[in-house]
Structure formats: structure tokens, C-alpha cells
Design a protein around this nucleic acid. Structure first.
Lengths: 149, 149
DNA sequence: TACTTTTATTAGGTATTCCTAACTATCTAA
DNA sequence: TTAGATAGTTAGGAATACCTAATAAAAGTA
């Protein structure tokens, strides 16, 4: 089974490949806030389970299986961030929450979320969804302030 | 720290109290799909950490701390289910997903979700949000079918 | 090229959470 | 009231994922 952790490591490795063009255990450790021995261990595990090809002190490359999973997680992540931003979560919190939620969301729900986001994005300007929502939030904000007085 | 597991157990214990009026290790085990020894162990732990009061072979009661946490998780769960249903996830899947997502969602995001759900529920009938969304989904359904041909 | 710094691995240990098997307490019904 | 069924606990162990300390390889520099 692909644990939450396998997914986290694959995602970070994917990002590093994307950002830097190469992958160092040191950078994985930094991004995941774990120690290098923990990374060594997981790299061995990922290699054993056929997600990556790896030789000691060498480079990491994805297998087909690893690439597929990494991309899928990335897709879930991106979708979650997009959705969270729509409902008013700021970029940073959206990123953080997406990192956790992406492991536990079922394919069915991902699909509903995708359709929802697409629907929202397709709404005609006259609908002014975002504006209405913002206005609603502002009104609530005012209400809260008044209550406190 | 309150782990994901502590939260799961507290939530199930809360539900049992609610549904049956009493709590049996057997029922907890059944609901969480674990064995009774696992439940015994966690009950000891919850007791040690002051979430419940418990004596061997006796009953379980929440402490203030335990009750507060259980209620909070329950609230997150209910909100998530409501939201998931809005975007078209069926009851059963919504329940399942909520059980997992409820552990990883930040307070800020919970708040945004709450405001979003409230906003949707307050929309005037003329907006017909749900109807428009349903229609959109149906149209997409048709498109998918046609593509497959 | 040899020395130093950086990077990665191994060894040994901890914590969490789960399991099976064996045992003990409690309840129930004859 | 006592024997069998049911429920709960303990003992011992496995898997996952993390850690620190020590070691080994690779890279960079004088």
C-alpha cells in the first residue's frame, strides 16, 4: 500500500526535479523537515517498491509507476489549492492544508471538486460569484466587530 | 500532541455515547475496525492523557478536555459532510472522506469552509445554485458519453 | 594529489499503532 | 449458584517512521 509518507516523499522529489533539475537527499530532508538518515531509509524503500531507480550515492530517477503516482498527487494538490483559494484561504495556508488533505481525499470527491472548480470558473461575469462571496464575508466581518462592542 | 488516532477514538466514543448511551470496547473495536486489544491500549492512553476517566472493566466518561476535543472533531466532521454534499458527493462517500479529512484541516480553512457553506445556504432561490450546478454536471455527463463513442 | 568539507549511509534506539494468543473478569441463564 | 459465553486485558511481536552518533563516500580546494 502507498502510505501517506510514500506520497509525501514522491511529491517532494517530483518538485525538486522540477525546480532544480536534480535531487539531493539533503534537499528532500530540508523540505520535509526530517533528518538525512530518514531520507536515506525512505529512498531505499521507494527503490525497493519500484517507485524510483536509485544506487547508493547516486542519482534518483522515477520509474513509470513512480512518475504516475507523483503526478497524480501533484494534480490532487494543485486542485485542492485552487479550490481552497476560491473559498478564501490564503495562498500559504492553502498550500499547507493541501499537503495534508491530498492524501486522504477519495477519487470520487476529487472528481466532484474538479467539477465544482470548473463550474465556478465558467460562471459568467454577471454572476459575480467571487464578489458576492467577498461582500458576504465583509458583512459578516462587520457584524462580528459590532458584536464585540 | 493529539494524534489522528486519538481523535478517531474520541469521535467514535462520542458517537457511541450518543447513539447507545453507553460505551463498550467491543463497539469501539467494531466501528474502527481494529481488535479489542488495540482498543484496550488506546483507552489506557486516553485515560493517561486525561481525555477520559476509566477504570479496568468499568465505564468510560469524558473529562472536560476530552469532551471539548470530541465535540470539536464532531463539528469539523459535520461541516465537512455538509460541504461535500453541496459539491455533489453522496452521503456515504461524504461520511467516509470527512472521517479522514477532519484530522488535517486547519482552523483557518474550517472557518472559510463554514462561511462558504453558510453563504451557499443563504443564496436566494432565484440564484438556483444547486440547479445550475446540477445542470452543468448533467451536460458534462452527456459530453463524456459522446466522447466515448 | 591530499586535505577538508559536504553529503549520504549504517547502526542502534524510540514511539505509535496495530496484531495474535493466552488469560481474566463479568454476565447470564439453567 | 455455578458453568459457559461474552467482554476486556496482558504479553509478546511486527511495521512504520522518526531520531542521534558514528562511519563512509564524494566533491571542492589548496
Amino acid at each position: 500500500m502507498t502510505t501517506r509518507n510514500v506520497e509525501d516523499y514522491l511529491e517532494v522529489i517530483w518538485d525538486l526535479q522540477d525546480e532544480k533539475g536534480y535531487i539531493k537527499a539533503k534537499d528532500i530532508a530540508y523540505k520535509l523537515e526530517v533528518t538525512r538518515p530518514s531520507v536515506s531509509e525512505m529512498i531505499r524503500k521507494l527503490s525497493e517498491n519500484g517507485y524510483i531507480v536509485y544506487e547508493k550515492y547516486g542519482g534518483i530517477i522515477f520509474t513509470g509507476k513512480g512518475k504516475k503516482l507523483a503526478q497524480e498527487i501533484k494534480k490532487r494538490h494543485t486542485l485542492l489549492v485552487e479550490f481552497l483559494k476560491i473559498i478564501g484561504v490564503d495562498e500559504q495556508n492553502a498550500q499547507q492544508d493541501a499537503c495534508k488533505l491530498e492524501h486522504d481525499i477519495s477519487p470520487k470527491t476529487i472528481n466532484c471538486l474538479l467539477e465544482f472548480v470548473e463550474f465556478i470558473n465558467l460562471l459568467p461575469e454577471s454572476f459575480k460569484w467571487r464578489e458576492n462571496f467577498k461582500k458576504y464575508l465583509e458583512e459578516r466581518g462587520l457584524l462580528h466587530k459590532e458584536r464585540k462592542k
